[in-house]
């Protein structure tokens, strides 16, 4: 596997040396595949956000190393800021970080700080709104006039505009309606395929994982629980439920049909996937006749 980010034997503690010391990550080793959307799931407190904060150098692992394109991100600690352009992190509720007068200036803030010319910044902004589904008419507006979902997308565009190798999104769709979720998450595939970038998506929505991710990493109590393609992970429903997670509702429906003797074949974790599998099942049954 061609890994863009590799986490090797990383451990992290909070409140080290105090009575409140707590192990957040315990000897974690995992790789994130280049050019893919990898989902990161786990119950609250499982270590997802801690891991995400280590990936772009916000925090430093207490032991172990993090490799970006094969190079330890802490090799030159003074240059860690450069890593943060390469691994772009979109935190929870990023719309609270909007601040500039216009949408255009807000999205261009990162690239300007990277020292790009006005012309280049303009191109970056144009590209970023395309990958986040923002209408060009909004560029001259104040970000504060926008709806919640639009603000969220502007905040994400601000990170995309820095052209990171890896875009890390922590719960980007929390609190959005189904259409808003699709608008934010649906464009990620274009960003990945056209720019050759990689995405890490943290979410509590198993349905979103199934819809938008190629791979899924499951965390539990500071460790990697499992790691594989979406279909590999969601075929282990009982295990996921036992660690406070779940599978999409259609996956449970497919599972219950199986227990009643209807074994479907295919990608049994999205509505479209199960629909296709049922059509195939019927086709197969008809062929038998």
């Amino acid at each position: 596997m061609d890994s863009v980010l590799e986490v090797r034997n990383v451990s992290y503690l909070y409140s080290k040396g105090t009575p409140f010391e707590r192990v957040a990550l315990d000897d974690v080793t995992v790789s994130f595949e280049r050019g893919k959307i990898t989902g990161l799931i786990g119950h609250t407190g499982s270590g997802k956000s801690t891991l995400v904060g280590l990936l772009n150098g916000l925090n430093k692992p207490l032991s172990g190393s993090i490799l970006l394109n094969g190079i330890d991100i802490w090799q030159k600690p003074k240059e860690i800021a450069k890593i943060r352009y390469k691994v772009g992190l979109v935190m929870q509720y990023p719309e609270y970080q909007l601040f500039d007068e216009t949408v255009e200036r807000d999205i261009g803030f990162g690239p300007r700080n990277q020292g790009l010319s006005d012309e280049e910044v303009g191109l970056r902004v144009k590209e970023a709104i395309r990958y986040t589904g923002i209408d060009a008419d909004l560029l001259s507006k104040s970000p504060f006039e926008l709806s919640g979902g639009q603000k969220r997308r502007v905040a994400i565009a601000g990170i995309v505009a820095m052209q990171p190798d890896v875009l890390v999104l922590d719960e980007p769709a929390a609190g959005l309606d189904p259409k808003g979720r699709r608008e934010i998450l649906g464009h990620l595939k274009d960003f990945v395929s056209e720019r050759g970038a990689s995405v890490i998506l943290v979410s509590h929505s198993m349905e979103d994982m199934a819809m938008y991710c190629d791979n899924v990493v499951v965390m539990n109590e500071g460790k990697i629980h499992s790691n594989g393609t979406v279909s590999e992970i969601f075929s282990r429903a009982d295990e996921l439920i036992s660690i406070g997670l779940d599978v999409p509702s259609v996956a449970r429906i497919a599972e219950k049909l199986k227990s009643r003797g209807i074994t479907l074949d295919g990608e049994l974790y999205t509505v479209d996937g199960v629909k296709a599998a049922i059509r195939k099942y019927i086709g197969g049954a008809n062929n038998d006749l």
């Binding site: 189904p178 259409k179 509702s249 259609v250 429906i253 509505v271 479209d272 049922i278």
Partner: peptide
């Protein structure tokens, strides 16, 4: 309206649309 139905309902709706 930008909303959905629960997945099971969506699945049945989709099946009916393709003639099942």
């Amino acid at each position: 309206m930008g909303l959905e139905a629960p997945q099971g309902k969506e699945l049945i709706h989709a099946l009916n649309k393709c003639g099942i």
